[in-house]
Design a protein around this nucleic acid. Structure first.
Length: 866
RNA sequence: GGGCGGUUAGCUCAGUGGUAGAGCACUUCGUUCACACCGAAGGGGUCACAGGUUCAAAUCCUGUACCGCCCACCA
């Protein structure tokens, strides 16, 4: 009878088993039936340096959920995973390893270094992918891609060459973010803005003609060595007659001009700004406008160059101290103030970023952005939540050139070759470059491309582009992109630009932005601070499905999600509840029951709820509103199927003459529920599905169809009457509990007056009521009224009369209070006039009920008052 | 400086005009053969604040405060 199923669900037994079974059955690959609608996701590639964190444990199962859902709905689904070489992140990890071994990249050279990185990748690169398997992600591993695979790399170079030839990529001198430790330019996303307490130093720059001085303020005094001007606002009265004069740059004894420019804010400090074009993006603009020289003061390691004269060779911070001291000695320091300085820090090295003028490769994003803006405005690509439409558009409209070159080794080397006569051509190889240039090539560009350049091709390079593969034809454009909000601009925008430009079509239709997973206290999880929760250890103790449910059931339009392990325990309990309820059904059903011709009210009620649940869940999944789907499923299963239907049907199940109908209803409900729950809890549902005695079921739940709940399972009348029955049942239980003040045996008899709508059976099946009678008892009883039904439980004299009266009076006070308020409202002519008629009608009925209730309460109080 | 999100029960959050909801936690009761990772009954909220619109506001409008995130060239 117990069919061998233990009383607790053991996640560790099921999870590995079913994952392997699915994979062996080839279920992670798209259906070969070309007639089916397609659903495709190219999964955001995790870094090869990565290991799983809670954000991943949400993001990847979310994609798995969508894939599994669409599969059940009958689509041919492709979920294509892969990895990103993550240039700067990976290179800095390997550099660190080399340093620990007492060597460095510079020492072993480019080729040996790259070899080392590849070695490291094969060693530990697949860790995170295996962790995704552990989470149950049904991804098509046979199509797995890596951004440095040969074919992928060729696609990257082809794009570069194409854009170079079309003038969309060009070389230029700009002020970029320079990381002095990693010695490369870095993108804005690889930097972090902070404010630190520092000093603002006011320095006097004397006029060359001896007519006094100008005071400038700076947070980086050492940059003065490369100053080429001082700027003031043209409208600034204080300098009206001084513009054009020359100043003597202290310490360097160089003459620099006082220029008028719109950049300085006259309200700030003295209104005069020192101009260092090579080390500040604003100053650079001023330098360009006034055609000023741009001496570079810092080298790649942020040491002072020859341009710094006597300070050459010093580190910038050392130079800063010396310069302030020297100026002090000269009496040129006006004052030094404590000041909150905004600084930019490299995410990878932690070092303060130096703005540095250097020669880099740039991509003309403003040009590429044009079609994107139109597309989003047209609704070609939609964001979820939709507020991101505007945020995205705003950024696209203000987009700037993109520095695509990195001074790294790990990545796609820029395919630009220089000829002996100084020209640059882009080509796939040295030979091709010579042919293309018609000249001798002397060297190839050393820099590599920004990681985002290659990941921007992800939706189509993974499918074999630039070849016209079958996958591309079938699955591009993809359906949904799931990502976190931090990389909308850096990654999503690039995929859009590259997709529209190179494929002539959007890369995906929907972009879903998921919540940031925070700690329980609302703070960020930080790996370096050790405040993160490790998903793998949670999976070990509570199971992958419980973790998935925890995160997915909190996924909607919210921007943050607080993770609490307690919630995963609740989710585990839910798994167990599903396990045991199904176990109960299996203990009572040994073969497929036939669909009955006649249903009782409770059967119709459950089927009706099932029907409604299916509609809710489907709509919720369709709108990425996973939390509503989970809520509907939880409520249906625990609150309706378990709490009510199973209990109600027990007497019928125990009688061979009546058991078949509830058997069929239970099996129908369980099967449908498992299917709907499957995208969230794939392992548990598969395990249970395999036990179900269903004729002609699919080999795997994973490959089954979405449940078909016919609309004739909708029974409004039975729903309403059963709800009333439940209310009465709860009322009787409450009545029982209210007299349980003293030890009580089961109630021998309960009375009722009023229409039970077929609920007699439900009430008498309650084991604690031995007999149910219609009418009113002659003896003393406690009573209450629920849903228009009077309930009485005879009590003899074993009761605390005072306590009972007190609680009756409290109830009376409460009801009277509500009654008076409602009455007042109904006496207000404006309410009766202006409110919707059905509202007024309803309120009148409520008032009548309240009046009846009050009368009864008064009677009952009298009954117990001596 | 600009923009966005949030503020509802002890905790985590649903709830877009009609007398406040869920899960957990808490209190009391209960080991009747699916499940104690369970069941039953309870207690608990002037819906951040101030105005306004409306017969009616957690819900719509305006403003304020606090928390968080994003963007930004103030030395």
């Amino acid at each position: 009878m117990d069919n061998g199923m233990p009383t607790r669900y053991d996640a560790s037994l099921s999870e590995a088993k079913w994952y392997e079974a699915w994979e062996n059955a080839g279920l992670f690959k798209p259906d070969s039936d070309l007639g089916k609608p397609v659903y495709a996701i190219t999964v955001p590639p995790p870094n090869i340096t990565g290991s799983l964190h809670m954000g991943h444990a949400l993001c990847y199962p979310l994609q798995d959920l969508l894939g599994r859902y669409r599969r059940l709905r009958g689509d041919s689904v492709l979920i294509l995973p892969g990895q990103d070489h993550a240039g700067i992140a990976t290179q800095s990890v390997v550099e660190k390893q080399l340093r620990a071994q007492g060597t460095s990249g510079a020492q072993i050279g480019r080729e040996a270094f790259i070899e080392r990185v590849w070695e490291w990748r094969t060693e530990s690169g697949d860790t995170i992918l295996n962790q995704l398997r552990r989470l149950g992600c049904a991804f098509d591993w046979s199509r797995q891609r890596f951004t440095l695979d040969d074919r992928y790399a060729e696609a990257v170079l082809k794009v570069f060459i194409d854009w170079f030839d079309r003038g969309l990529i060009f070389r230029g001198k700009r002020v970029v973010n320079w990381d002095p430790v990693l010695q490369t330019s870095v993108s804005d996303i690889e930097t972090e803005r902070k404010t630190v307490r520092g000093k603002l130093t006011y320095i006097q720059y004397p006029y060359a003609d001896g007519s006094g001085h100008v005071v400038i303020a700076t947070t980086r005094p050492e940059t003065m060595l490369a100053d080429v001007a001082v700027a003031v606002h043209p409208s600034d009265e204080r300098y009206k007659d001084k513009v054009g004069k020359m100043l003597v740059l202290p310490l360097m004894n160089r003459e620099i001009p006082l220029v008028a420019d719109v950049y300085p804010d006259p309200a700030f400090g003295s209104g005069a700004v020192k101009i260092t074009p090579a080390h500040d993006a604003n100053d650079y603009q001023v330098g360009v406008r006034h055609n000023l020289p741009m001496p570079v003061l810092l080298d790649a390691r942020a040491k002072i160059t020859e341009a710094g004269g006597p300070y050459a060779g010093l580190d910038r911070l050392e130079a800063r101290k010396r310069i302030v001291a020297d100026l002090e000695e000269l009496g040129l320091i006006e004052k030094i103030e404590e000041y909150d300085i905004p600084i930019v820090v490299s995410e990878r090295s932690g070092e303060v970023i130096e703005p540095l003028l250097s020669e880099q490769w740039f991509c003309d994003q403003p040009k590429l952005a044009e079609p994107i803006i139109e597309a989003v405005k047209r609704g070609d690509v939609k964001f979820h939540p939709d507020r991101y439409d505007r945020i995205f558009l705003e950024w696209m409209e203000n987009i700037r050139e993109w520095c695509v070159s990195r001074q790294l080794w790990w990545g796609h080397r820029i395919p630009v070759y220089f000829t002996d006569d100084g020209r640059a051509v882009a080509a796939l190889s040295w030979e091709e470059a010579e042919k293309k240039a018609g000249a001798k090539i002397v060297r190839q560009e050393e820099d590599v491309l920004d990681t985002w350049f290659s990941s921007g091709l992800w939706p189509f390079a993974t499918m074999g582009w630039p070849q016209e593969t079958d996958d591309l034809k079938r699955f591009y454009p993809t359906s949904t992109l799931i990502t976190d909000r931090n990389i909308i601009n850096l990654w999503v925008a690039r995929m859009m630009m590259m997709g529209y430009d190179l494929m002539g079509e959007k890369p995906f239709s929907d972009v879903m932005i998921y919540a940031t997973v925070l700690r329980e206290d609302g703070k960020r999880m930080s790996k370096s601070l050790g405040t993160g929760v490790d998903p793998m250890s949670v999976i070990e103790t509570l199971g992958a499905d419980a973790l998935r449910y925890t995160l997915l059931s909190q996924t909607g339009e919210n921007q943050d999600l607080r993770y609490s392990e307690r919630r995963t325990e609740d989710a585990r309990n839910f798994c167990n509840k599903i396990w045991n309820a199904t176990r109960f059904v299996l203990m009572n059903v040994d073969q497929t029951p036939k669909e009955p011709s006649e249903l009782e009210a409770s059967d119709k009620w459950l089927l009706s709820r099932l029907h409604l649940t299916e509609r809710k869940v489907r709509a919720a999944y369709d709108h990425y509103d996973i939390q509503s789907a989970c809520q509907a499923l939880f409520h249906f299963f625990w609150g309706e199927l378990c709490d009510w239907y199973i209990e109600i049907s027990k007497p019928r199940l125990n009688d061979p003459a009546t058991k078949e109908t509830p058997q069929w209803v239970l099996l129908t409900a369980i099967e449908a529920f498992l299917k709907m729950m499957h995208p969230v809890m794939p392992h548990l549902t598969e395990e249970l599905y395999q036990h179900l005695p269903l004729d002609g079921k699919a080999a795997f739940l994973m490959s089954a169809d979405w449940p078909n709940i016919p609309s004739y399972y909708s029974f409004a009348e039975e729903e309403a009457s059963m709800e009333r029955v439940f209310e009465v049942t709860r009322g009787l239980r409450a009545l029982r509990a209210s007299i349980d003040l003293t030890p009580m045996k089961p109630i021998p008899v309960a009375y009722y007056q009023g229409a039970l709508h077929g609920g007699e059976q439900v009430l008498s099946s309650q084991a604690w009521v031995q007999e149910l009678r219609e009418g009113k008892p002659n003896e003393r009883a406690v009573s209450s009224t629920v849903a228009g039904v009077d309930l009485h439980i005879p009590i003899g004299d074993i009761i605390d009369v005072e306590k009972l009266c007190a609680s009756l009076r409290m109830e009376l006070a409460k009801v009277t209070d509500n009654h008076d308020k409602l009455k007042l409202r109904l006496e207000n002519p404006q309410f009766v006039e202006r409110a919707k008629p059905e509202i007024v009608e309803r309120e009148r009925a409520t008032l009548a009920d309240m009046e009846a209730h009050i009368t009864k309460l008064k009677e009952r109080i009298l009954l117990f008052t001596p």
